[in-house]
Amino acid sequence: MTISTTTSPAPVLLSADGIGKTYVGEKGAQVEAIGDVSFTVAEGEFVAIVGPSGCGKTTLLRTIAGLLKPSRGEIRFDDKAVRRVPDGFGIVFQEYNRSLFPWLTVRKNVEFGLKDLPRQLRTERAAEALARVHLAGVEDQYPWQLSGGMQQRVAIARALATHPRVLLMDEPFASVDAQTRINLELMTAEISAELGLTTLLITHDIDEAIFLADRVFVLSARPSHVLMEVAVDLPRPRDELATKADPRFLDYRRTVYDAIVHPTTDTTPIATTIPRAEVLT
């Protein structure tokens, strides 16, 4: 073990501390969506959270974002407890077509979070963000005139335009075709790296999580806890063919897959860190 050679880790930017969420319905019916989830995200890190459908991923993201009050535990950002959406958060929602405002053009949608800036700067920022997601020339159209993949890119551009420090994305590529999905994944990786963004990606796609992330958290079924934490040591920039053919990629994939398909019956939360050496052997 060569622990001593690891460079000192970047400071923690975002942390979840014993988060739990129980929904209480109209008639007092309770749904425990999140059991007990804790983790930390370092500055500039790309973290993916995978879990089966309905396990509370969206709930977790909304809690992290400060849109939902957790029943237990605390989210901390920049060493302050999160009570509302902090400045410096950009969020891309799962149902992007519903989150874009249909009465605003693409440009106005992207400028939505820039209200306080002078007009000139707003226009520049919007153009820059749209260029980053490879969407130019549709500024004056309405979101509903665009294809699903284009709408998703508008939603990403809108989050980027505010120059966030943290980008939260909830299954952003779930409802686009395979080719578009690969393009969007590559684009996301490139943007995160270039801007040094701290990125938290929620997905149910194991390949996507491993392909994009530095670390992957695997959630159990509802009420969710972290089944496993996988540090992904694959070279960057990642490549659709080379990375996915890398034997380490396949190992990570098997590990995560096993964790989801054969979760330990033990209900106490466990966090198995798989060191690089172990996976390589």
Binding site: R62, A65, L67, R84, V85, D87, F89, G90, I91, F93, E95, R98, S99, F101, W103, L104, F112, G113, K115, T162
Partner: peptide, 28 residues
């Protein structure tokens, strides 16, 4: 759509701004 309200909140908008910039246009 509550998601549109959440979107506005994600940009740090307060109650009044949400009403003016999301609820009213959506109600037109």
């Amino acid at each position: 759509d509550p998601l549109q309200v959440d979107t506005a909140r994600s940009f740090g908008l307060g109650q009044l701004a949400i009403i003016r910039r999301v609820v009213l246009p959506a109600t037109v």
